[in-house]
């Protein structure tokens, strides 16, 4: 009986340790301490064709890198602040992915409406 109890205790201990280990240290939805992608903003969510919008990613962390993507249009510049322009009217989604040197990442998007 004692052996069974010891075995149960050991298994319970392993489970507790496993649970602690599986806690994410930093993912898209669980920013780690020091890493925080707080906001993605633009100076204009409504613009005309061929105008430029300035878009800024506000993030903190160490050695941050920024990846900017959009289905259409051209980015000017790189890093936390970029400009973006497009040559036809529509609603466009601009996405920024921020990463640090601890493999923490977070992604945010904004929609810009472009009119003729």
């Amino acid at each position: 009986m004692k052996k069974i109890m010891y075995l149960v205790l050991i298994l319970a201990g392993i489970m507790v340790l496993s649970c602690n280990k599986s806690k994410p240290s930093g993912t898209d939805n669980n920013p780690a301490k020091g890493f925080n992608f707080s906001a993605l903003t633009t100076n204009d969510t409504l613009m005309k064709v061929n105008e430029t919008a300035t878009i800024t990613a506000f993030a903190t962390g160490s050695s941050l890198t920024y990846e900017w993507t959009a289905t259409f249009g051209t980015f000017i510049g790189s890093g936390p602040t970029v400009q973006w322009t497009v040559c036809h009217a529509d609603n466009f989604t601009i996405t920024c992915k921020v990463s640090d040197n601890q493999s923490h990442t977070d992604t945010k998007s904004i929609v810009i409406r472009v009119q003729n």
């Binding site: 959009a70 980015f75 510049g77 790189s78």
Partner: peptide, 13 residues
Amino acid sequence: KPQMVDGVQLSRD
């Protein structure tokens, strides 16, 4: 995947 340069995706064109 589309080409990225300096962390910025190039336009489709």
